[in-house]
């Protein structure tokens, strides 16, 4: 009897077969020639940048360098700042979000934001997470409940609060409050999450939990994070952008920025020689 040998290793999928080619064509966020003024002060001096889908991008730079202004452009948070003026294009999934006909409320459903200080509403844990869904007009209680549970599970807060969802969100610890705020953001299923120094007011354990969470969220969301913590940027982000005096000095893979940056200014900043 003839014995045929078959290779024991299964054929591996090629990169092309795993990758959705459409993702490669249009960047998730595309910022072109962006300039920003607050009255006469030019805060952003002409920046081009593209941000890939399902990546974590960290913005670093000394205070006043324009990184938070740049972040807030992505969900039009600067629109109501007195004296704000902008030039350039910001596209999300290929659409310019600064077109006149764009509904800003609709835009912000797609783009969640987490702030430096946790800011839960003076409501119950459940109502905090359900808030976004309710103001969207969703009335299906079962749907809301499911979404609240899944959001709390996603931020690893469920086990800690499941027995007391009526408790005030304000009664949680700082780290729990921040995770609650992230859950509130996730509940409306955005595709982008902007984070402005989300762990700067937290202790190291809460910070580690949030960092783990951010890393896991990358699978579903595109994340942009402003941080002053160099180690945080190097630990969690895929790409790092260094801003200085309203300019984008260097933007590259995080590994490159933290091992062998191209620009001297970047090196001086990340090694603590200025800033």
């Amino acid at each position: 009897m003839e014995i045929t040998m078959k290779p024991s290793i299964k054929r591996m999928k090629t990169v092309e077969s795993v990758f959705d080619p459409s993702l490669k064509k249009v960047p998730k966020i595309d910022l072109q020639g962006v300039k920003v003024w607050y009255d006469d002060f030019m805060a952003i001096k002409g920046i081009d940048m593209t941000i890939k889908q399902n990546s974590i991008t960290a913005f670093i730079g000394p205070s006043g360098c324009g990184k938070s202004t740049f972040l807030r452009l992505i969900n039009r948070m600067n629109d109501y700042v007195d004296g704000f003026k902008m030039e350039g294009k910001i596209k999300i999934d290929g659409d310019n979000i600064y077109k006149k006909k764009v509904n800003v409320e609709e835009l912000r459903k797609k783009i969640g934001m987490v702030f430096q200080k946790p800011n839960p509403f003076p409501k119950s844990i459940f109502d905090n997470v359900a808030y976004g869904l309710k103001i969207q007009g969703i009335k299906d209680k079962q749907f809301i409940k499911e979404r609240v549970v899944s959001s709390l599970k996603q931020v690893a807060l469920w086990d800690e609060v499941k027995d007391d969802l009526k408790k005030s969100g304000m009664a949680l610890s700082g780290g729990q409050q921040q995770r609650l705020c992230i859950a509130r953001t996730l509940a409306v299923e955005p595709s982008i999450i902007l984070m402005d120094e989300p762990t700067s007011s937290l202790d190291p354990i809460s910070t580690a939990k949030i960092e783990d969470l951010i890393f896991q969220l990358k699978e579903k969301y595109t994340i942009v994070i402003v941080t002053h913590n160099m180690q945080q940027a190097s630990r969690i982000s895929d790409y790092t952008a260094f801003f200085y005096l309203g300019e984008l000095i260097e933007y590259d893979k995080t590994k490159t920025i933290f091992t062998n940056p191209e620009k001297k200014q970047t090196e001086n900043y990340i090694t603590g020689r200025f800033g």
Binding site: M230, T259, N260, P261, E267, I270, T271, G272
Partner: peptide, 10 residues
Amino acid sequence: LYNPVAIDLR
């Protein structure tokens, strides 16, 4: 103590 990066790390 210093968490060196880039040239400091090298």
